[in-house]
Simulated scan of single mutants.
Amino acid sequence: MTRAEPARATPRRRAGSSTKGAAKREAILDAALEVFGEVGLHGASLREIAGRVGVSHQSLMHYFPTKNELLMAVLRRRDERLRRHFADAGGMSIGELIAVARDNVRMPGVIELYNMASAEATNTEHPAHAYYAEFYESIIASNVRYLQLAADRGLLRDGWTPESAARAILGMMDGLQLQWLYNRDDVHVAQSMELLVGALIAVPLDTLDEARK
């Protein structure tokens, strides 16, 4: 009769190793943001990004096997703040969109990447085309729900619908952020958005926010 071998314990992953891996992943995303912002998707190379992080090309590919996967991870991280509000009851507050525009001036690389990638992604063959198409429609749909409250209360200015107002606000944000990259002294994105919103809605945004509670 053969004696049964003792069961082998399943090796545990050390907490430190997973933490170190997460930190390295974030460092790769930071470096990728810089490189994509400088030279765009097509001009960027995984070797250049790996070099900035101080890891090997093969080590980087362990986290992101292709440049397209890395780009999508960078874009998703950039948009996390807005996406978590898309499903808010009553839609995402326009005030949150303005707050993002105000914070973006501290991260010009993010704005550069966003403008480069979104422009290139109009090509249906671009790896981020479906992502951006869905992102734009999701943010518009969420803002439309928010602005519908203003429309229902007669607070939306004549001639505007929730959808046309939502598209105008987002269009101004995107357009002004592009202009800001050329002239950072005279272009004030958040302040201009606030002026537009004031011309669209008859009450301050704080009042509208209180009304949806």
Rank of each mutant, 00 (worst) to 15 (best):
F86K: 04
M173A: 13
T124H: 12
V74W: 00
A32D: 02
P127H: 10
Y146C: 11
H57R: 11
G40T: 01
V39M: 09
V197M: 08
I111R: 00
R106C: 04
Y182A: 15
I49L: 03
E210S: 11
L46Y: 04
T124R: 08
V189D: 02
A32G: 07
R102N: 03
M172L: 15
L181T: 13
D185R: 06
A166Y: 01
M173D: 04
Y131G: 00
R184M: 03
R47Q: 10
M72A: 03
F135E: 08
L178A: 15
G40P: 01
P108M: 08
I139R: 13
P65G: 14
P11G: 04
V197Y: 04
M173V: 11
E134K: 12
V53R: 06
N115W: 12
I98A: 03
R106E: 15
Q179K: 12
G16Y: 14
A211R: 14
D79N: 11
E134Y: 09
A50H: 01
V55P: 00
I139T: 09
A4G: 10
W180I: 01
D88S: 14
P127V: 09
W160E: 14
V53N: 10
V144H: 06
A199V: 09
R157A: 15
L97Y: 00
V144A: 03
N104T: 06
N143Y: 00
L113A: 09
D209N: 12
P127Q: 06
P162N: 12
D152K: 02
D79L: 06
T19F: 11
E120G: 03
V197T: 03
L113G: 06
G16D: 15
L170S: 08
A7R: 07
D206V: 09
H42I: 05
I98Y: 00
T207G: 08
A15E: 07
A202E: 15
Y114G: 03
T122S: 06
V187Q: 04
G171S: 05
M193Q: 07
A99M: 01
